[in-house]
Amino acid sequence: MKTPIRTPSALGWSWTSYEQTTTVMRLFRKDLHETRQVPVVEWLIDGEPLTERLRFPNGTPYEDLTLMHDAPHFPPSAVASLRALLLLAGPEQEPVGFSDGRVGILYCPCGDLYCGAVSADIVTSEDTVEWRDIAHQDGTTEQLGVSEIPAFTVTFERSAYESTINTLLAEWAARVDDQSGSTS
């Protein structure tokens, strides 16, 4: 029996935002709460946000994000995550990849892999890139599927995938360079 040929999905991205609340605890006075919208790049698969595919059975949205936040300390992490999605190894990979070789795709808003992440086994062929078994992975035990969301796989046409990731990589690498230039 032949395996059906799947049409590759298209990987895209768009800017969106998430609400971040910071609490300042003060002695003998009411705590201060500051809420702001933080811009973040969101992955789109065939035009649909990846987070929509990751909704819990009760309809609650999955709240993990990419590391491409519009915040000063995130550009180096964004570059590391994009390099990992291209399977480019480097010393900066530790905060974006698990010891079993899986790569983080979406992370806790704090950006710490040890909070757990949505990860995938990235497999390439001459013509395709697959994000295999996309699932939540525990940051401490590295156990897969620790949420109620079933794992799934997405296949992309390799040249389009690499073009999308390389475009973002150039943008975020420039942000890192801008930060380095402004601090020297």
Rank of each mutant, 00 (worst) to 15 (best):
77 S>G: 14
163 S>Q: 09
133 D>K: 07
166 N>I: 00
64 D>K: 03
28 F>L: 13
176 V>Y: 07
93 Q>K: 03
24 V>D: 13
110 C>K: 04
114 Y>V: 11
74 F>Y: 14
176 V>M: 10
160 A>F: 06
145 G>H: 01
169 L>I: 11
115 C>E: 09
19 E>R: 15
99 S>Y: 05
3 T>V: 10
62 Y>S: 12
18 Y>V: 15
123 V>D: 12
68 M>D: 10
155 T>L: 02
140 T>G: 09
137 Q>Y: 04
143 Q>C: 00
108 C>S: 15
64 D>S: 10
105 I>G: 01
68 M>E: 12
90 G>I: 10
99 S>M: 04
82 L>F: 04
123 V>N: 04
46 D>H: 11
18 Y>W: 15
133 D>R: 07
26 R>W: 00
97 G>L: 02
119 S>D: 13
146 V>H: 01
49 P>S: 13
117 A>S: 15
32 L>W: 01
172 W>I: 14
104 G>E: 13
184 S>I: 03
133 D>M: 02
21 T>H: 04
69 H>K: 10
27 L>V: 10
98 F>M: 07
52 E>V: 07
9 S>Y: 01
76 P>M: 07
148 E>Y: 00
89 A>F: 01
61 P>A: 12
26 R>I: 15
17 S>Y: 13
59 G>T: 12
29 R>P: 02
31 D>Y: 00
12 G>N: 07
27 L>K: 11
125 S>P: 11
111 G>S: 08
19 E>W: 04
4 P>T: 04
65 L>N: 09
156 F>V: 11
122 I>Y: 01
18 Y>Q: 09
30 K>P: 02
72 P>S: 07
180 S>C: 06
73 H>F: 08
80 A>L: 05
130 E>D: 15
5 I>L: 12
165 I>C: 05
67 L>H: 05
70 D>Y: 00
112 D>M: 09
118 V>A: 05
135 A>E: 12
21 T>Y: 00
90 G>P: 12
98 F>E: 10
157 E>G: 05
64 D>W: 04
41 V>S: 05
16 T>M: 05
79 V>S: 05
149 I>Q: 09
62 Y>V: 07
135 A>Q: 11
133 D>E: 14
69 H>S: 12
113 L>Y: 01
71 A>Y: 08
43 W>S: 08
167 T>A: 09
109 P>M: 04
179 Q>P: 01
69 H>N: 07
51 T>H: 03
8 P>E: 05
